[in-house]
Amino acid sequence: MEDFSLRHDARQPAGGARKMAIVGVVASGNLEVLVERVVPERECLVEIRTTAEGFGAVWNAVVADFVDRYSPGGLKFSINDGGARPDTVSLRLAQAVRLMEVEQ
């Protein structure tokens, strides 16, 4: 297992008012993303725990692209990863942001 966390500045706060959401499951090639509105609104924090070791650079790139695209300010993402491919990671992160925008 490998743990690391990535902190980014965000252009603007994420939309919606929901406090928490979760998507995905921890399985081979899949991951779960728990998202919480708990960090300052111009910041974004992504904490990753993954079974696939040595992919730090890939995570860096995927998360940087995600933050650039969605500007999820104020959100902390906690990830349990079962070795998902980068496109699956991107999909789940995007789903998590959208869920935070949905009325509850």
Partner: peptide, 22 residues
């Protein structure tokens, strides 16, 4: 005791296996 409470298994890390928040 939802996933945000992070009450994960205390035993899976012994096997180097990933946890799930719920």
């Amino acid at each position: 005791v939802g996933p945000e409470k992070r009450e994960v298994s205390p035993h899976l890390k012994v096997f180097d296996l990933p946890e799930q928040f719920d």
